[in-house]
Design a protein around this nucleic acid. Structure first.
Lengths: 271, 271
DNA sequence: CGGTATATTGAGAGGGGTCAATTGCCGTGG
DNA sequence: CCACGGCAATTGACCCCTCTCAATATACCG
């Protein structure tokens, strides 16, 4: 028999109502010109956004060098302390957020307290591009987070002025949609082991784009967060991660794992 | 104990390689002017696309009446016979499809044959709006399907000429993204019973927008299709649907179900 | 009326859930 | 420096929802 099996007996822990939202207002800081201090001097001759400390920032790459000051003019840097919220599920604030450092957890909570995590945003990722009237999830900082924030109206004005930005924006949303469909396949059809392997492989690849090649995969989120992302329980995540360690696929280190056998891990991730 | 439980031991049936793709080329028919014959004369005084037999067709609603001929000029009507493919996972054809009648199944297949269904497109729904270079899934007709097809280049030209269309397009993609996130929550955190109830409720609401209020919910897809959509097995789907029937929530009728107690069904759908 | 595909139903097994106890890791204060 | 409290992570024992496998029923079609 092909024991390709998944399961998720239940829903993991519930979130008590009183604890669902955590304070943590952003400390809005300075004005847009401060952003320049983050300009990465090691760019390899390619036009790119001077405002962004992150390479390969897709939206910024669509701007010509002479258009960057316009972005600076509307962008505001923001800091969030650990557990601070960028925005809250159901609220209507309307900003586009670009993560410049740290990791943001996108949480959705059911009326009965079951939790699901839509994703983790890494430096360079965008939040709030959908322009929905209400946020479908809460975005919370895991550890300290800095972002580049643009009000929706300013962003829309910018887009009106630069039609190619609008197309880039659509491409970005479409990419998110494709990722969501991958996630659906994972949740519906992969075993717990495969999900964890997929998660680690994908996270390693994403960190690689931010920090460069490394066997170290930072996991700033809790086991519960991972469980809520993968449709499992904390205990199952723990058991399987430690199982990987016992099989010498990875080593568990503080705040993450070190991948020993990437090939094998990748093999586990897709039947 | 709170018995809120889901599970999906495994992956359901695998698709044998030789059977993954089914022929069924579309019979391209006539030219765009033929579309007019489908114009619904019962419109309630609101401007809308004369080309589309479906009301509330979001993209068409964004066009002014005098812009419609331009859409007609680039749109081509297509027929697909049962099991015919609109496009195939991994292929690069580039058309936007608007379903005008019938139901289309969006299938994704893993290398090892596990199948996942991303969704079912009903009349009025769009396919291919993402403009990815490669289709992430195969779109297959369940029963006879007619569509309104526009080549991507023609569609892009149209969009370049009408900026408000681009914004509409983005909103549509964003809506799909939000739906995908709902689906992720469902797959990760709902029990089999809850998933089925959610599925039936949501499908009833969608048919309602096409056909008007009715207790009848058409299910042109097989139990296996539903299972692959909900991350379950065919057997579990069958057991639970028949369970609903035994509880008098629904009655099973040919090609669908009739909802007897919508309130209770909705209550089951969200813990 | 056979033949094939889909749906239903039953019996049994198992993956991952639940519950609970233990360990490890800080940060804090005595 | 160590005791202590709190939170996350780990581990074990047990359980159950859903899967698997298999038999049967139903439907459709030539």
């Amino acid at each position: 028999m092909l024991a390709i099996t998944s399961q998720s007996h239940s829903t993991g822990a519930r979130i008590p109502i009183h604890a669902r939202f955590h304070g943590g207002t952003p400390e809005r800081e300075g004005d847009a010109q401060l952003l320049r201090q983050f300009a990465d001097p090691t760019t390899e001759g390619r036009e790119r956004c001077q405002s962004c400390p992150v390479r390969n920032l897709s939206l910024c790459e669509s701007l010509r060098l002479d258009e960057l000051p316009e972005l600076d003019y509307v962008a505001v840097k923001a800091h969030y302390s650990p557990s601070g919220s960028l925005f809250i599920q159901g609220s209507k604030d309307d900003c586009v957020h670009i993560i410049t450092s740290g990791v943001v957890r996108q949480t959705r909570i059911l009326p009965d307290g079951r939790r699901s995590i839509a994703g983790f945003a890494l430096p360079g990722d965008f939040l709030g591009l959908s322009f929905e009237d209400e946020h479908a999830f809460t975005a919370e900082a895991l550890g300290a987070v800095t972002t580049c924030r643009i009000t929706r109206s300013a962003f829309l004005e910018l887009i009106d002025a630069k039609p190619h930005l609008m197309r880039r924006l659509h491409a970005e949303t479409a990419r998110h949609l494709a990722l969501a469909q991958d996630q659906m396949m994972m949740l519906g059809r992969l075993t717990a082991r495969e999900r964890l392997a997929t998660f680690l492989v994908s996270l390693r690849n994403r960190w690689q784009r931010v920090n460069g090649q490394s066997a170290h995969v930072a996991l700033p989120m809790t086991r519960q967060d991972i469980a809520d992302y993968l449709g499992l329980t904390m205990e199952t995540v723990s058991r399987i991660v430690n199982g990987f360690a016992r099989e010498r696929l990875i080593v568990i280190v503080p705040d993450g794992v070190r991948v020993l056998d990437f090939q094998k891990l990748e093999a586990v991730s897709a039947g």
